[in-house]
């Protein structure tokens, strides 16, 4: 067992973990932040996407030890208190979710897309950029709409993901 210090959603945690602990296990089991989900074991579904030092990462494919010293934002840290992040709001407004299981990863990826590609996103770009996130409920139609709208709203001065800054 070794100590890992990570800042998660702005709060520093020092946790004793076994070397084989994945970042997602640290988040879900040690910190009990269960919004980050695990939907596959081949690093494809993206339900586990979080931001590490400001960029989207599949937390099921990173050792907790490797995250030592990093700043992590999970879905729980995206809203500013009770004010939802514009991307969260856009997913609700455009019915970009059904069962909700892929949603945290989708939203974290969507925010990352905007951080990288800006706020004017066409449908083709959004679909391409969602390559690493699988949804079984929505057929992606409304997710694509939500990401486009969320991106525009983020430009409108709303605060992007907290990590990284």
């Amino acid at each position: 067992m070794s100590n890992v210090t990570v800042t998660v959603n702005g709060k520093s945690h020092t946790v004793d973990v076994a070397p084989e602990t994945l970042l997602v296990e640290l988040i879900r089991e040690k910190l009990r932040l269960t919004g980050t989900h695990v939907g596959c074991d081949t690093s494809q579904c993206g339900a586990c996407v979080v931001h590490v030092d400001g960029v989207a990462v599949k937390s099921c494919t990173m050792l907790a030890m490797t995250a030592d010293g990093a700043s992590v934002t999970t879905i729980e840290g995206l809203a500013n208190g009770s004010a939802l992040h514009p991307m969260q709001e856009a997913f609700r407004e455009h019915h970009g979710l059904q069962c909700g299981f892929c949603t945290p990863g989708m939203i974290m990826s969507a925010v990352d897309i905007v951080n990288r590609k800006g706020s004017d996103l066409d449908e083709h770009t959004i679909r391409d950029e969602l390559e690493g996130n699988i949804c079984r409920c929505t057929g992606y139609h409304n997710i694509v709409k939500a990401v486009a709208a969320g991106a525009k709203a983020m430009k409108g001065g709303a605060k992007p993901a907290r990590a990284a800054e």
């Binding site: 074991d41 099921c60 494919t61 050792l63 030890m65 490797t66």
Partner: peptide
């Protein structure tokens, strides 16, 4: 050796790889 881990870690999760030591190059 562990570089980005995007292939090694999935293989280890499925227990298809079982290194005794991981040398993280990060």
């Amino acid at each position: 050796l562990l570089a980005g881990g995007q292939t090694l870690l999935p293989a280890m999760k499925l227990r298809l790889a079982s290194p005794g030591t991981i040398v993280d190059l990060s």
